[in-house]
Amino acid sequence: MHIPDGFLSPAVIVTTYVVVVIFWAISFRRVKSELDERMVPLMALLTALFFAAQMMNYPVIGGTTAHLLGGASLGILLGPSTGLISMTIILVLQCLLFGDGGITALGANVLNMGVVGVLVPYILFVFIIRATKGKQLFVGAFISGFVGDVLAATSAGLELGLSVPTFLYGVSIAVPAMAIHHSIIGLAEGLVTAALLKLLITSKPEVLNLSPTFRHLSSFKIHQVGGLPLEKN
């Protein structure tokens, strides 16, 4: 999903950079309320974990491959602002050290995988958990992971499609091509997100009570999520 240099039109490059700079500014302001001392090791570990996870390419359809994004897990466990900063660190290093994604497309890549890929799953997860009063953790995490991945790919397809004639095919071809292929890996992303949360609930519940998302949920009078009693905010 990493867009290289040469695929996006100047207008799309400028627009995506501007949007991302706004989100970075908001995140750096908001991260103050999300992050605390005890969360720093978790932030570092999840960033390293999903950087490594992005190295694994899974066969999807038509001989193509895709990799997990990790955006949903980062957004849910670290909160949207810290999650965006984590994903930005991954994407900047991939771009500068490994040539995975171009420098002119960095704004677009952060917008797709960092903003859409992190923020959308976070919002969906909070919505589903609130709507089900904390009973559908697995469903919430799965849907968040799946939709986050598909929308991140759709956003990439949209940027490419809007970059005609730099990129030869328009929105009607680029968007479905990206979205359909990534819906397969989206299923895996959903399962991984749900499994990770389930694993943490059973083995390390204290980690989830550190998460700003779970602390935020407790302020909506949600007393438990997937059987995990929430500490009062």
């Binding site: 999903m1 867009i3 038509g62 500068l96 990129f167 292929h181 990534h182």
Partner: peptide, 18 residues
């Protein structure tokens, strides 16, 4: 990746600046 495959089919070459 899908993106690389589609680009290859279209003859679009992505060359990183850095």
């Amino acid at each position: 990746e899908t993106l690389d495959m589609v680009a290859e089919q279209l003859g679009v070459i992505g060359n990183n600046i850095l």
